[in-house]
């Protein structure tokens, strides 16, 4: 399998076997010391995402490499109207690998098309955030010891929630079942359902979290008030997708969340052994270390 110099713009850039190889590489990546010494990672963040940026930077530092980048476009040439293509062609002179975060759908592909160094998509609009999906899948693999034959509950904003769509796509490579819980207004869009139907994936739709507790994995996401056309409707349903202390006691599922959370998960649940969301962050660094190393070709 060859990863050297490839891009990771979209989850389907990698086959199922290649995704598994990233996970295998991640299993032993912490034992390898300074394998990226002398290499530079550039983090180009056209919109803030502190957690994603810190995770990538931590990964590169742990590999013995260096990091450059920007997080505030107000002080860069981008503000002066530089194109993504030109920014990419400049930054590749300073770095060996680039992580791009951008508010526009499809931005990562442009940078990948115009540069020779590997590009990792750190989130491009509502299009993709494929390393989030990799780390979500890796978390399930590590915590439950498998990725198939599971019942997965996904709860929250399923209409705009890129994380939820990608996770469902990634996990549907394996034989899994889904229960989706969301307010009517934020239910899974038809195109996402069509993708599941095409693969003959079994799924149910619910409106309340309490009907989604009998699962192996419970993936919680945030609901933003701004997503509702009608504020009264928001007030009416906002508590139906909150994992309260009481509901938390009724489930043994592995509880995950991409973080940051607002109020979707009660703090009392944090102490439970099955609350995996902070460990999930740790797996994120591990997976990103593996990905960076593979794309740079320092491991195979």
């Amino acid at each position: 399998m060859n990863f050297r110099n490839r891009n990771f713009v979209s989850l389907h850039d990698f086959s199922k076997e290649e995704i598994e190889h990233v996970f295998k590489t991640a299993d032993s990546i912490h034992e390898k010391k300074d394998i990226c010494a002398g290499k530079i990672l550039a983090t180009l963040f056209y919109e803030p995402s502190t957690r994603t940026r810190l995770s990538f930077e931590s990964a590169m530092h742990r590999l013995g490499g260096n990091v450059i980048g920007f997080t505030d476009i107000a002080t860069t040439s981008v503000k002066k109207g530089e194109t993504i293509a030109d920014t990419g062609r400049s930054v590749e002179c300073y770095s060996d690998i680039i992580v791009l975060r951008h508010p526009d759908d499809g931005a990562a592909k442009i940078m990948a098309d115009y540069t020779k160094v590997p590009i990792i998509n750190g989130g491009d609009g509502s299009h993709q955030h494929p390393t989030q999906t990799l780390l979500d899948m890796y978390t399930i693999r590590q915590e439950l010891g498998k990725l198939k034959g599971l019942k997965i509950g996904i709860c929250g904003d399923l209409k705009y929630g890129r994380t939820a769509h990608s996770l469902a796509e990634g996990l549907s490579l394996y034989n899994n079942e889904f229960i989706f819980a969301s307010p009517e207004e934020l239910k899974l869009p038809d195109y996402a359902k069509r993708k599941l139907d095409e693969k003959n994936i079994k799924y149910e739709e619910k409106r309340e979290l309490k009907d989604t507790l009998d699962v192996d994995v419970l993936y919680m996401t945030r609901i933003q008030k701004e997503r509702f056309h009608d504020p009264i409707e928001y007030e009416r349903v906002k508590n139906n997708t909150i994992l309260t202390k009481e509901l938390g006691q009724k489930t043994n599922a592995l509880i995950m969340h991409p973080l940051p959370r607002v109020n979707e998960i009660a703090y009392e649940i944090d102490e439970k052994q099955n609350a995996a969301y902070f460990r999930q962050m740790k797996y994120g660094v591990t997976v990103r270390m593996a990905l960076i190393s593979l794309l740079l070709g320092v491991v195979e």
Binding site: T83, D104, D105, G106, I110, Q128
Partner: peptide, 25 residues
């Protein structure tokens, strides 16, 4: 927004549909 780009669509022969090569819509 990036005006030097030409529209590019991938042909999804399974669904007989065109998908934007950038945003996949």
């Amino acid at each position: 927004t990036e005006h030097y780009l030409q529209p590019l669509h991938n042909v999804n022969k399974k669904r007989n549909a065109l998908e934007c090569a950038y945003c996949e819509r």
